[in-house]
Structures are given as C-alpha cells and as structure tokens.
Design a binder for these strands. Structure first.
Lengths: 257, 257
DNA sequence: GCGTAGCGTCTACGACGTAGATCTACACCG
DNA sequence: CGGTGTAGATCTACGTCGTAGACGCTACGC
C-alpha cells in the first residue's frame, strides 16, 4: 500500500472540496489502477488505453500513475498479472488424474480469455518482450505448477517441460482461434453473409464458402476438449512408452525409443 | 501498379535535382512500401515503425504512404500478407500423404516466424481485429488449401475444418513459444544466469530453476515435429474411427464413437 | 490551352508517453 | 511552534504519433 492513513484522510477531504468527480478520490493503489485499466481494455480495447485516459478515469493526473507502473508497458504486464490471478493453477496434490487437472486449467484459461477477449493479445505477446526469468513472478506460476504436476505423473523433468510447451502452445492457439470467431454482420441470418464470406471469389474459395454453416456453428468448448483429447492421448503414449518417464516411474516397458 | 511511365520519368528527374537521398526515388509502389516496412519491423520491432519513419526511409512524405494503405492498420495487414506470401501452402495434388504436406506447411510457417520474429505478434493478432470474410484474401489461402487437403484425405468438411483449427492453433502456439525463447544475458555461460532464473525464489520455483539446462537447450524444430506427431496421430485416429470421415471415404470401420 | 491526376510540401489538430519543475498539505521531530 | 521531509497535485514541456486537408506544381491527354 502506497497511501498512508493520513494521506487517505486528506484525499477524502480534498475530494469533498474538489467536487464534480464521479469517482471517489480514495487513496490510489496499484490494484485500483490495474482494475480500471482492465475495465477500459475490456470496454474499448488495448489501443484505446492511454495513460491520460486512464488518469482521467481515475480522477488523477496521468503522471501519478507512474508511481504504480514505471511505464505503460509495465502497466500492461500488470494487467496480464491481474487477469492471470484468476487462472486455476493445477495443483499436483489435488488427487485427481493429471489430465483432469490439465483440462480444468485449460477451461479456466479459456474462461479468462472469453471474459477478457481484448486482453488475449497481451496474454500471448507480452512474454515475447521479456526473457523468462525477468517476467512478473505471478505469470510464471502456471509453468511451475504444470511441470510439477507432470513430474508427479511420472514424466521426467525434460518431458514435463515438453508437455508444458505442448499444452500451452495448443491452449494459446486455441483461444486465439476462438477469440477471432467474430462475425461481420451479427444481425444477418444467412451464414455466408454473417461471416462476410460472400466477398470471397467462389472460384478461389469453394471450400471456405461451403463451410459457412460449420464456421458459424463454432463450439469452442468442444473444440478445446477434442484438442485436449488428442494432446493427452499423445502425452500418455509417450509416458507409457517410457519416452518421457522420470526415474520414479520407470517400472514397466523399457522400450527403445 | 499505381505509377505511370510518365510519372516515373518525373520521379527520376526530381531525384536528380533533389539530391542527398540514399534511396533512389523510383516510382513508389505498394510492394516497395511493404518491403521497407517489413525491413524496419525486422530491424527494430513493430513499435518502432511509424508512418513518418517509414516515409523518411523511403524518401517520401508520410502522407504519400496513404496512397498505398488507407491506414497504418491496413499497412500492417499488408506486411502480414507480404510475409505469408512465402508460406508453402499445402497442395492436395502433390501426391504426398496429407500429413507429410501438413508437416511441410508447418515447417514453412516456422521458418517464416523465425525469419521475422517481430512479425509473429502481427501474424497471430491481426486476425482478431477482422471478421474472417473481411480479411485480406491472401491470408485466407492457407485455410482453403488445408481444408481442401484434408477433405481429399477423407475428412468430411466439418472434420476438415476441425483439423484446420487444431493444426493452426497448435502451430501458432508453437511459434509463440519458440519466438519467446530468448535469453536475459546471451554472454553468460551458466544457464540459470543466462535465462535470468536466478531471480526467482528457489522456494517457489524449484522445478523451473532445476530446468535451466533443458530450457536453454530448446530445439524448436524437434518440438514442432513431436507436437505434429501427436496431432497427426490423433487426427488419423478420428479419421479411421469414422468420426470425421467424408462420404467418399467411408469404406471401413463404421465404429461407434 | 485547359482540365485533371499524381505527387510533393506544408500546416495543423488532437493525441501520445513521459521528463521535470514547482507548489501544497500534512506528518513528524526537536 | 517551526523546520524538514515526503507524498501528491499541477503544470509545462518535449519529441513523437496518425492523419486531415489546403495548396501548388508538373505532366499528360484531349
């Protein structure tokens, strides 16, 4: 907490004198800043978020925001952290089968993505800007937890890392697919027109045009589950074939790779 | 082509009189603009690309660029098109097995991503901003081609679409993983320090810290192949189980799902 | 010669991220 | 009580951004 009790009292006093502010001038803290930033992103998209606009929304000078984030980039990292705080991180101690836990995590991530579609680009691209070890600690929790889960399931550490990469790669790709499933004209009843597919030359895109109905009937949860089926089956196969097993679980099938 | 012969002559003449420009003032065209934009993105990242900077690099007033892209967003879409023009689109007529063709396409996409790491965020996020049918036509070619390939392999249209989504979802996720595999300190020999993992509390991230060597020894091509193995195996299973078969190929195993 | 298209130049607007100076209010201490 | 330090507000400012629009010039077609 940056504010102190007395400063808080002062804020309340000057709020009364200042007047006209719809947002009560309570002491500002990092979380309040991030929550408002997230609200604005959810409402208008990332591009519409500026420090000036955020400052105005919070009833503060934009320069004040730099007390809570050293730069706009760091603010965006904070928003990612805020959103990922709701991610149901897999716990190896749950007693559930590892694939059940992974599925739960996947659906939790999907729910977050659907709740905050405008944040998805941030979720997938912020990591590109920062080396692993320099990222906000909270965003590394899922990695640690998933690796821990998979090691507990019998994968060796390398195999667990491989499983993590497969899982997150697939998951990120899936939510990117799902979030982009928007329509050109929501009020249109004809699938071809709704999706804007009528623009495409029939000669060049016969398949795509013929898939209008299927495209419009997208079921993200089902797609996710089916993808996870394939992923889990593949990982299971690797585990039972001894390709990715850890020392504690190498009790059967020492098959050559 | 926007320029005409006579305008070209005029350009050459004023180039001689203008002086000082390292870039010869040939007639400007869309491709030249996009190629330069791509070069700048590759060199300095997307954020460093502005219309003013691009105009300067081309020896043109930035307002001139609007002749070739209606907005900066459209310019970025054009860069994506330019980059994807190099993608080896799967051809169903190749005679090769469908999974071989998919693998080839995946590696082609990966090569593109590695050649233009700064463009990867654009590759994965631009589609979020535009409904499918309104996207640049060239960026829809892979979809049409992959669906065509899978239908030719025996999937029904819906199953082919499902396979396309799985494939691209996984592929996008993979390249996002791979492009983010950067190090905090390239000159450091100790893996823990190279990746900046020493910053992480050992108590909270024992797995992650223990994986420094594996993290540093990332082999993207191998990861991609292993992921594709799993994906192809899963899709094959669906096909042979009759879950996703098209009418022309339903000659075996009418198994219940 | 006239009209028009293409192009260059320039001004301008609203906006951006953020540096830094100055001022105010309040808490704390001697 | 007075002085000092700190948090926060306010303000100016800089360089930069995307892009609108006015104006002028040149070349070409009719």
């Amino acid at each position: 907490m940056e504010a102190r009790g007395t400063a808080e009292g002062d804020e309340a006093a000057s709020s009364g004198a200042g007047g006209g502010r719809t947002l009560r001038r309570a002491a500002l803290d990092r979380r309040t800043v991030l929550v408002e930033a997230l609200r604005m992103i959810d409402a208008d998209g990332v591009e519409a978020l500026s420090m000036r606009r955020l400052g105005r929304a919070l009833g503060r000078d934009p320069m004040r925001l730099y007390r809570f984030a050293a730069s706009k980039d760091e603010l965006l990292d904070g928003v990612v952290e805020l959103v990922l705080a709701d991610l149901q991180v897999p716990r190896a101690v749950d007693g559930a089968d590892w694939d059940v836990v992974l599925r739960r995590c996947a659906h939790s991530f999907r729910a977050i993505a659907l709740a905050h579609p405008h944040v998805v680009p941030l979720l997938v691209t912020r990591p590109l800007a920062t080396p692993l070890g320099l990222r906000p600690i909270a965003t590394l929790r899922p990695l640690e937890a998933i690796v821990d889960l998979l090691v507990g399931a019998g994968f060796d550490p390398k195999g667990a890392l491989h499983g993590y990469r497969l899982f997150t790669g697939f998951l990120h790709g899936h939510v990117l697919n799902e979030v982009q499933e928007q329509v050109a004209d929501p009020d249109e009843t004809d699938d071809l027109l709704r999706l804007g597919l009528h623009r495409l030359p029939a000669r060049d895109f016969p398949r795509l045009r013929a898939l209008a109905h299927e495209l419009a009937a997208y079921d993200g949860a089902a797609e996710l589950d089916e993808g996870l089926d394939i992923l889990v089956t593949g990982l299971r196969h690797q585990l039972s074939a001894g390709l990715r097993s850890g020392p504690a679980h190498r009790e059967g099938g020492a098959g050559a790779s």
